[in-house]
């Protein structure tokens, strides 16, 4: 079915992707060590993902589920181009924002406002685009007057709220979200979900990695179960989650 789909409808296409990491026993980083241990450079390749093929349509909300270490986060990292596959291709269509690590690149000495500019620019926004959004970002973060204080004075909750507000306001076509639903208190979490549902209605594509099956059932149209680096089951949320929970118990 994936072959017949028009390119215009596709947000992410993953083709036969393999990925393995080098696991060094004792990493030889210096020239001396490299020369000394030439030929017995101790590493093994650990396969993290193999034969992954996945097509995600525009506007879909997809959950990646699976036990720890099954390769979900690696797959998300591949989609953001932080790392590259050993084999196969990954294509993404449209502006992509990953909420893998919130607040990456925050500079503790700069104020919240300055960090909005810096962090949003990492997502590829121009100054004007940030100017247009800054009020929304500050309002969503509920930081109010604290926004002009240095970020190092923030509590961890405030820090995450600011980071999340920036990422969610970037206006991306595709959002990759890795276990960030532990952001802030109940009130803020509710607003995060609300905002994400809002984005979903606007036709944004979202890929979640989460262990909260309640959230998966509630918000996702489709679930992909990854088991030991391979796709075990891919289909409507409830079917996949039921089977996954059966195996876990």
């Amino acid at each position: 079915m994936t072959k017949k789909m028009k390119t215009g409808d596709i947000a992410i296409r993953v083709n036969d992707v393999d990925k393995s990491f080098k696991v060094y026993f004792d990493k030889a980083n210096t020239l001396k060590e490299r020369l000394l241990f030439l030929g017995r450079n101790g590493h093994e390749n650990r396969e993290v993902l193999s034969d992954i093929s996945l097509t995600i349509k525009k506007g879909e909300t997809v959950a990646l589920i699976g036990v720890n270490g099954s390769g979900k986060s690696t797959l998300l990292k591949l989609m953001t181009k932080i790392i590259y596959p050993d084999k196969g291709t990954i294509e993404t269509y449209g502006k992509l924002v990953s909420l893998l690590e919130l607040g990456a690149g925050f500079h503790p000495d700069f104020s919240g406002r300055e960090n909005i500019y810096f962090n949003a620019s990492i997502f590829g926004l121009s100054k004007k685009e940030i100017d247009d959004r800054i009020d929304d970002i500050i309002a969503f973060s509920e930081l109010k007057d604290y926004i002009d204080n240095p970020v190092r004075t923030y509590s961890s909750g405030m820090y995450m709220r600011l980071a999340f507000s920036i990422a969610i306001n970037v206006d991306a076509d595709i959002l990759l979200i890795d276990e960030i639903l532990a952001v802030g208190d109940q009130h803020f979490q509710d607003r995060c979900y609300e905002k994400m549902m809002d984005l979903k209605r606007q036709g944004k594509t979202m890929v979640f990695v989460t262990h909260s099956m309640d959230a998966v059932r509630k918000y996702c149209d489709r679930a992909v179960w990854i088991y030991q680096g391979r796709i075990k089951k891919d289909g409507p949320t409830n079917e996949v989650v039921d089977e996954y929970l059966k195996m876990c118990s």
Partner: peptide, 9 residues
């Protein structure tokens, strides 16, 4: 390195 491992740019 820190930021490089976290976000794409």
């Amino acid at each position: 390195g820190g930021i490089l491992k976290k976000v794409y740019f």
